[in-house]
Simulated scan of single mutants.
Amino acid sequence: MSELDQWVAEITAELGLDGVQVPTTEVLDMARDVAHNVLRPGAPVSAYVLGLAVAAGADPVEAAAKISALALRRSTLDS
C-alpha cells in the first residue's frame, strides 16, 4: 500500500466513509488538468466541487472527466 493509499484509508475512516472507493488516479488527473490549464488554486477547489457532485449522486470518474475536459477546453480557448 502506497503512502497515498494509506492516507486515503485514514481520512475515509476518520470521516466515517469506510469502504468508500476513492478514484485517486482520476482525482489527481483532474487536479493536474485544472492546475496546469486554468489556475493552481482551482485544483483543490475543483476537487471540492467534485466531492459535492459525488455527494449529489454523480459518478466520481465521470464527473472528474467532465471537469478535466472543461479545463482542457479552456486552455485551448486561451491559446
Rank of each mutant, 00 (worst) to 15 (best):
M1S: 13
S2A: 09
S2L: 10
E3N: 13
L4T: 14
L4S: 12
D5N: 14
Q6R: 15
W7F: 12
W7G: 05
W7L: 13
W7C: 06
V8E: 06
V8L: 14
V8A: 09
A9K: 15
A9T: 15
A9S: 15
E10K: 14
I11D: 05
I11Q: 11
T12Q: 03
A13G: 14
A13R: 15
E14S: 12
E14Q: 13
L15M: 13
L15N: 07
D18V: 15
D18G: 11
V20I: 14
V22M: 07
V22Y: 13
T24S: 07
T24A: 08
E26G: 02
L28D: 01
L28C: 03
D29T: 14
D29F: 15
M30K: 03
M30V: 05
A31D: 04
R32M: 06
R32H: 08
D33E: 12
D33H: 13
V34G: 03
V34M: 04
H36T: 09
H36M: 10
V38I: 15
V38K: 00
V38C: 01
R40K: 11
R40W: 01
P41G: 08
P41H: 09
P41A: 08
G42L: 03
G42W: 07
A43S: 12
A43M: 03
P44F: 02
V45M: 09
V45A: 07
S46I: 07
Y48K: 06
Y48M: 08
Y48V: 07
G51H: 09
G51C: 08
A53S: 07
A53Y: 00
A53Q: 02
V54A: 01
A55Y: 00
A56D: 07
A56N: 05
G57N: 04
G57Q: 03
A58G: 05
D59T: 01
D59I: 05
V61R: 10
V61F: 01
E62G: 08
A63T: 00
A65C: 02
K66P: 00
S68F: 05
A69L: 11
A69Y: 10
L70A: 14
R73I: 04
R74K: 06
R74D: 04
S75T: 08
D78G: 06
S79I: 05
S79M: 07
